[in-house]
């Protein structure tokens, strides 16, 4: 019989290439985190990272193509959350994205999503093709101090 700390929630959804369709997925993930009493700051970072990952998948990956979809997988337990976001685009090379904090790029209105995901997540990894990102956040209260 699993204890509360061993409880695992897992789901997978496929959404159309429409950023509005990402909001219910975010809400569902946030509800799981809140039910497991994750810290507000963890919840903030995870929601922000999912938003960025979904926008990248839909806009830059699938280029808003209505014939393409985005797969979202989520697994969350008491210790950590893992989210995979996979689009049907051609992929990209993350190291080709210019540093948005460089002086010459500071006033560019785009290019900050990956940086924010990196800052708020414990782990962020792309597959070799560059069309799937894995995000992991470990519960901060258990690693703090």
């Amino acid at each position: 019989m699993p204890t509360r700390d061993e409880r695992v929630e897992e789901f997978e959804v496929v959404i159309p290439s429409d950023t509005a369709a990402g909001q219910p997925v975010q809400d569902r993930i946030v509800q799981h985190l809140e039910a497991l009493k994750y810290d507000d700051r963890d919840v903030f970072g995870v929601r922000l990272a999912i938003e960025e990952a979904l926008v990248n998948a839909i806009k830059h990956g699938n280029r808003m193509d209505p014939n393409k979809t985005v797969r979202v997988f989520c697994r969350v337990n008491h210790q950590k959350i893992r989210i995979e976001v996979e689009d049907q685009g051609e992929g990209f090379v993350p190291s080709d994205v210019p540093d948005p904090t460089a002086d010459e790029n500071l006033e560019r209105p785009c290019g900050r999503g990956i940086m924010l995901m990196r800052a708020f997540m414990t782990l962020i990894e792309y597959n070799a093709a560059g069309n799937r990102v894995v995000l992991e956040k470990h519960r901060s209260t258990e690693t703090a101090g």
């Binding site: 922000l48 006033e107 560019r108 785009c110």
Partner: peptide, 17 residues
């Protein structure tokens, strides 16, 4: 405001300009 994404930052930068 409780949440704000990078796309929103983009709008703020354009507004500033």
């Amino acid at each position: 405001v409780e949440y704000l994404s990078s796309a929103a930052l983009g709008k703020l930068i354009t507004m500033d300009k």
